[in-house]
Design a protein around this nucleic acid. Sequence first.
DNA 1: TGCTTTATAGGTCATTTGACCTATTTTTGT
DNA 2: ACAAAAATAGGTCAAATGACCTATAAAGCA
Lengths: 190, 190
Amino acid sequence: MSKRENVTADILKQTIAILKAEGSSGVTMRQVANKTGITLSNLQYYFPDRTKLFQAMCEFFFRQCEKTILSELSTINVNDRASTNGFIKKLLEMLIVDGINDYDHSIFRELWALMLRDKELAETVHRFYRNYANWLVQLISQFTPCPEKVVSLLIPYADGYEIMGADLPLERNAIVEMLSEIISQMTRKK
Amino acid sequence: MSKRENVTADILKQTIAILKAEGSSGVTMRQVANKTGITLSNLQYYFPDRTKLFQAMCEFFFRQCEKTILSELSTINVNDRASTNGFIKKLLEMLIVDGINDYDHSIFRELWALMLRDKELAETVHRFYRNYANWLVQLISQFTPCPEKVVSLLIPYADGYEIMGADLPLERNAIVEMLSEIISQMTRKK
DNA sequence: TGCTTTATAGGTCATTTGACCTATTTTTGT
DNA sequence: ACAAAAATAGGTCAAATGACCTATAAAGCA
């Protein structure tokens, strides 16, 4: 890896850490430089302005996210690829989590707000979601005849559940059970 | 209404408008004062610091939200309270919308981010969701034997759909149809 | 009417911040 | 080894911001 790649990776990691800890208004050029252990001028050499830093951070974050998702899903494939129900159950256990237990979730919340006023950022986020959806459709298509339906149900639900799942009248277990039933019914019927 | 109530209501409306237009970092004491047409000092007389302004805005916003939801739902009750399917379909049409078409949705995104670092704000948001869920359970209980399941499915899904529904493999119509089927199946089976 | 409370106005101050600018120093390629 | 490019450092500046402070003006009330 070149110097440039190393330093920029360091910068972007620290940027994400600050975004998580202090929110978007906490991400100042000076804060990022300090946390990275470089000078402000040096940071500005790599990222001339704040907007470029944010855009780069966003792309870096999603690349990292994709890795995380892939490695998490590889856990499933080993054990439960045999039965459809087993696979779906594992998938649900993975997707339906409280935001408090999800390290990346705070970053998503920040991006959902930031993308409202930054079209380039918005496009990056939407591109991630489209990739994620397509990729999950492919994965699931071995287990159900209607992968698009399952994915269109699960992804939005998982995002919403991270936000306010703790305030629902049903416990997580009951919800996972419910979704599991819904999906197996979909799979049988079609 | 007393002077105080009038002025504070004006202030909070403008605060929300700025939050929507420019995000949380755009909400400065001076901006709010200007938009409201009062001086900075006068604003600080009503809200001594930024934190108090945010907390008050959040509560004001949710009060306003509850009114909106109630008036929207009163639209349904007149026509379609007769058939369960009709009611559910109308409810879905109302809940499953793209965030871009929902005026309040930007504010929610800001609050989801802000509440990560403000416990008081977080409690206010969670209280809103709990109220909303309880209230929707009550409303739906006339139409289904398992209102908790329906609500636990719909609220998180609606929030998630506003965020990334546009990136799903299925069109909105197909999704509304799918959810409608899921709910009527729930209602029949139990 | 006069007195007290409420409301409004103007100003100051230390800090923070992003964007520049101009040296040096280090690395790279020849 | 040396010229060119890449990287790092230090400093400046104007603008914005939250928090205060003090002085009027308006309203409410005795």
